Simulated assay, not measured.
Amino acid sequence: MWRSIASNALTLFIVLLIAVAGLLAWGRGQFTGPGPLTESICVKVERGASLAEVSRRLEEQGAVSDARIFRIGADYSGKAQGLKFGSYLVAPGSSMEQVLDVLTAGGASTCGREVNYRIGVAKAEIVLRELDPASNRYEEVAKFDPAAEAAPQVYVDAALEGDLRWQVTLAEGVTSWQVVESLKRADFMDGSIAEVPPEGSLAPDAYEVEKGADRAALLAKMQEKQKAILADLWASRVDGLPYDTPEAALVMASIVEKETGVASERPQVASVFVNRLRQGMRLQTDPTVIYGITKGEGVLGRGLRQSELRRATPWNTYVIEGLPPTPIANPGRLSIEAALNPAVTDYLFFVADGTGGHAFAQTLEEHNANVARWREIEAQQQQGTNP
């Protein structure tokens, strides 16, 4: 009898072991296998949220098939206490294991909303965008110029969100004064700015910042980046340039930056000015005249007058010989590279060609023909016809 009981108990125990093993295997399959999502979604982890709260929300959003299995898997993997606050993009078919990895990896949020403060030559704009999980593309929610408009309520509300991402973007060709004045209007930043950084010393780029970031510290970061870019490109410059210091190259780069917005022709534009310097010709470039008038404090907003082309300022290259004493804007990397590695050409002139680029010429005769063509295009544009 006891043998029968022992045998039955052992059999039951083995059956139970098999059942438990099967259950564990099934649970692991559920945890590591493809998930139920058919399209991407944003998952938000609130600050201080518990694993139970997050797992329930994941099940409600259809990111996981069973909140209990997700919690058990998180406990078993040792990541139950590793949830990171923020908004995260979860891809279609993500397993529970992959979802857990996304929510515990840390770093910047990969979903939700972001603010980009774009500091441009003409104006600065604060742009609020939100990621559309389905297309994985950001869509504009609101945009305004803090110098001229009140912040819309949607931005005010969004600024209170703890996981909102912040970015400051400098366009190529902005002046240091424009950057400082724009940063003063950045309501998401703190700290005062003692002085305007030297012209040309700020690297145009996109900078990730935290809410409440120090303005002066951001300017210092921009200066360090520009310094590193200039040092890197100066080391690989071509021989025979008509300027022998990085500072002079930066001046040339700023002129190239202001003369063209077409990246592919910057080396040709640089070659014109390099050729002129080598031949002892004046640079005769309008952006330097404008800088002599505005000192980089705003946009001129009109055409140059003949009297201004003749007016002597330290930057007016129609009057002075060689390069101006300082840059006239903050040039980007491509313009610095063009100044240090200009194209090899015989060009001495260029003028707008009506396409956004320029027509280049070796002789004054060719240049005058290009100018006449540009005048025709201007006249046709004023009449509302296509050239």
Rank of each mutant, 00 (worst) to 15 (best):
V238Y: 10
A158C: 14
E247L: 08
S236I: 07
R165F: 04
L160C: 04
Q226P: 00
W234Q: 10
E247F: 11
E161L: 13
V174N: 13
A231T: 07
P242L: 02
K221E: 15
P152T: 09
Q223A: 12
E208G: 12
R165D: 09
L233K: 11
E247Q: 14
Q223K: 12
P133A: 12
M189F: 03
M222L: 14
E210P: 01
S201D: 08
E149C: 07
Q153M: 06
K211E: 14
D205E: 09
S135R: 11
I229E: 06
D163P: 01
G162S: 14
S201N: 00
D187H: 01
A249L: 06
S192N: 05
K221Q: 15
K221W: 06
L233F: 02
E149V: 03
Y138L: 04
A249N: 01
L218S: 06
V179P: 07
P246R: 11
V180W: 05
E224K: 10
P246A: 12
A231C: 06
A220N: 09
A248H: 05
Q226T: 11
D187P: 02
V154S: 15
K227W: 00
Q167W: 10
P146C: 13
V141A: 09
P146Q: 04
Y155S: 05
D190I: 10
Q223I: 03
P133R: 00
V209C: 03
K143Y: 04
A249C: 08
Q153I: 08
K227A: 13
A217C: 04
A228V: 07
Y207S: 04
R185A: 09
E195Q: 12
A171H: 05
E247V: 05
Q167V: 02
I193M: 05
K221D: 12
A217W: 02
S135A: 14
D239M: 01
L160K: 13
P204H: 08
A213H: 00
A171D: 14
R137D: 12
P146K: 03
E139C: 08
A134K: 15
D239E: 14
A150V: 03
A148M: 09
Q223S: 11
P197D: 05
M189E: 03
Q178E: 10
Y138S: 08
V180T: 12
D239P: 06
E140D: 05
D205Q: 11
D232K: 15
E247R: 00
V154H: 07
S176T: 13
A148K: 15
S182E: 00
A248Q: 12
R237N: 14
